[in-house]
Computed example of a mutant assay.
Amino acid sequence: IKELSTKPDPERILIDVREPTEFTSGHIPRALNLPITSSPDFLFLPPAEFADRFGMPKPQETQELVFYCKAGVRSKAAAEMARRAGYGRVGEYKGSWVDWVGKGGERA
């Protein structure tokens, strides 16, 4: 996770699935915010609708998606959803934000 937060890699995307208010109060650097609670269908959207809703291109199925949330519950659900949507390279940061902050991780 530390590597993802410091070195951009177009093949690996760090995704914060917390709500926007949680995200703006602090997040892991370089993470994208795709909230699973208010937008549970985000990976099932057509690319144009995804871009309209989130202001960024939809992740490609060949990219690795790494999810985190506050404590790991929502990130687990997002990872399962990604697999159902056809993404083969899916990871979770099980400790999520609580672990990141607890270990002194940089905040954006």
Rank of each mutant, 00 (worst) to 15 (best):
E22T: 13
D41K: 05
P46Y: 00
L32Y: 11
A48Q: 14
S25V: 13
M81D: 03
S96C: 01
F50K: 08
T24Q: 15
P57L: 12
M81A: 13
N33P: 06
A31P: 05
R74P: 09
P40F: 03
E22N: 15
A79M: 08
P35Q: 03
G91A: 14
E19G: 13
A78T: 06
G26T: 09
T24I: 15
E106W: 00
H27K: 13
G91E: 12
N33M: 06
P40H: 00
K103S: 10
E80I: 10
G91H: 07
A71Y: 14
M81F: 04
N33G: 02
V66A: 08
T37Y: 11
S38D: 09
R89V: 00
R107E: 10
Q63V: 06
A71V: 15
P29K: 01
Y93F: 11
P40I: 06
Y87I: 04
T24V: 15
I28H: 00
V90M: 04
G95K: 08
K2D: 10
P29F: 07
L65P: 02
V98D: 15
Q60D: 12
F67P: 07
L45W: 04
D99Y: 07
F50T: 07
F67N: 06
G26F: 08
F54V: 03
A78E: 01
A79C: 06
P59H: 10
E11K: 14
F42I: 08
P8Q: 10
V101F: 03
A48I: 13
R12Q: 12
Q60C: 08
L32T: 10
P10Q: 08
K76H: 12
F67K: 05
G105E: 01
W97L: 11
T37Q: 15
P40Y: 01
W97H: 09
L45D: 05
G104H: 09
K2V: 12
R12I: 12
E22Q: 15
S39Q: 11
V66E: 03
P20C: 07
E80K: 10
D41M: 08
M81Y: 02
R83Y: 01
G72A: 04
S75G: 09
R30F: 03
M56Y: 01
A77C: 01
C69E: 10
E49F: 05
G105K: 00
G88F: 00
G86Y: 02
A78D: 03
K103D: 09
V90C: 02
Q63F: 01
E22A: 15
G104T: 11
G72K: 04
D99E: 11
L65T: 02
R30G: 04
W100P: 09
E92C: 06
A79H: 01
E92M: 07
L45M: 13
I36C: 10
N33H: 02
I28S: 02
P20F: 05
P47C: 11
P29G: 03
S96D: 00
L43H: 00
G95P: 08
Y68F: 11
P59Y: 07
F50C: 09
F54D: 01
R53C: 06
F44E: 14
I15D: 08
V98S: 14
R30K: 12
F42S: 08
M81E: 08
V17S: 07
A108G: 14
T21H: 15
